[in-house]
């Protein structure tokens, strides 16, 4: 028969075992083995751009004018406007064409390299940047000319065609290549500061070349020989009239009559309007309007692809924004208001 002391010992041992088991169960339950409770780091370790993404509604001067146009690409790259406001889009190795209402036209051009730039002339001629060289097609999509490769590592991101000179922005060499009209390379100029592969050009009717020097946050003006004439633009993440991030604007287009310039930015994904002197006018679209897309680009499937917007403007002043991730075109039209920027003719 067990003594009282032995019984007490058994109780103590039982209690110790119960407490130990309870501790084990508690530690298993309370330990966040699967990361469901987050990283447990303090607020100083969080990266938050939500305040910077907010746009003053009074600054938004445009609204979406029609349903978005599905380009049919799996990933959008570039957009241009041609005769009769036809819309040309690039995605992967294909070019697609739409009429001004967004209806897909039968013309498709496909090449064996990525299409990286497109410009369409008034006669419908299509100048395509095919990664490292330029190809020219007529309005029906027939190949007319294929120019020599700039070299390995070249990436043509924009093409400007003037009566005598063709300019190609080459991200690879961070320079602008000058060709004569027959495709003979003349020379190159510039040592642009381009941290990522966005490098846009435009041509003004008074004979000047505009180039986005993104690392300097500037739109620069050159004469046709490549001499720098002037520039405007500066950095700020907080001030909406300036360009954000490491390298913006990633793309731009001229409004009809060169009354202003529409710019696109990455980081804080937004579209803005400046007058021809570079004074900020307002927003076409604020960062909030790209929340869904920015949510997608934060996911692993998207976050390391090129995802910057491209922009074109048609003859009616509609701003056509190609959103690469959803591969769709947003069509923006000026809201009819009588504010100061309208009185400036923009």
């Amino acid at each position: 028969m067990k003594s009282t002391k032995q019984k007490n010992n058994q109780w103590v041992i039982g209690l110790v075992i119960a407490v130990a088991l309870g501790g084990v169960v508690l530690s298993i339950v309370s330990t966040d083995r699967f990361g469901e409770k987050g990283n447990g780091l303090g607020p100083e370790y969080q990266y938050d751009l939500s305040e910077l993404r907010k746009t003053d509604p009074a600054m938004i001067l445009y609204k979406e004018a029609s349903p978005r146009i599905n380009t049919g690409h799996s990933w959008g790259r570039a957009i241009a406007v041609g005769p009769e406001d036809q819309i040309y889009t690039l995605g992967g190795q294909q070019l697609h064409v739409f009429d001004s209402t967004g209806k897909r036209l039968p013309l498709t051009i496909e090449r064996d390299k990525e299409l990286t730039a497109v410009t369409v002339l008034k006669d419908g001629s299509i100048y395509l940047g095919v990664t490292d060289h330029i190809e020219i097609f007529d309005a029906s999509g027939q190949l007319k000319s294929q120019w020599e490769s700039i070299g390995s590592g070249a990436e043509i991101t924009s093409i400007v065609v003037t009566p005598d000179i063709v300019f190609a922005a080459d991200f690879g060499s961070r320079s602008v290549i000058r060709y004569d009209a027959s495709g003979q390379k003349l020379d190159s100029f510039g040592d642009f500061n381009l941290p990522s592969n966005y490098f846009d050009l435009a041509y003004t009717s008074d004979g000047q070349l505009l180039a986005a020097n993104t690392g300097e946050h500037r739109i620069e003006t050159y004469d046709l020989k490549g001499n720098l004439m002037s520039w405007w633009g500066e950095f700020s993440n907080q001030e909406p009239d300036k360009f954000c991030g490491c390298c913006n604007p990633i793309s731009f287009a001229l409004l009809p009559g060169q009354s202003g310039i529409v710019t696109c930015e990455k980081g804080l994904t937004r579209v803005k309007v400046y007058d021809k002197e570079g004074r900020f006018v307002g927003f076409v679209a604020g960062a909030e309007s790209f929340d869904q897309r920015d949510g997608l680009t934060a996911t692993p499937e998207y976050c390391y692809n090129r995802m910057g917007l491209d922009v074109a403007v048609d003859s009616q002043g509609r701003v056509l924004v190609l959103e690469p991730v959803m591969a769709e075109i947003r069509v923006y039209q000026r809201i009819n208001t009588d504010n100061s920027s309208r009185s400036q003719g923009i």
Binding site: P195, G215, N237, G245, C246
Partner: peptide
């Protein structure tokens, strides 16, 4: 790396 003057990994979003 772009060797950016304005590196967004180095600077606060609103420096």
């Amino acid at each position: 790396c772009g060797y950016c003057n304005l590196c967004t990994a180095f600077f606060e979003p609103a420096p």
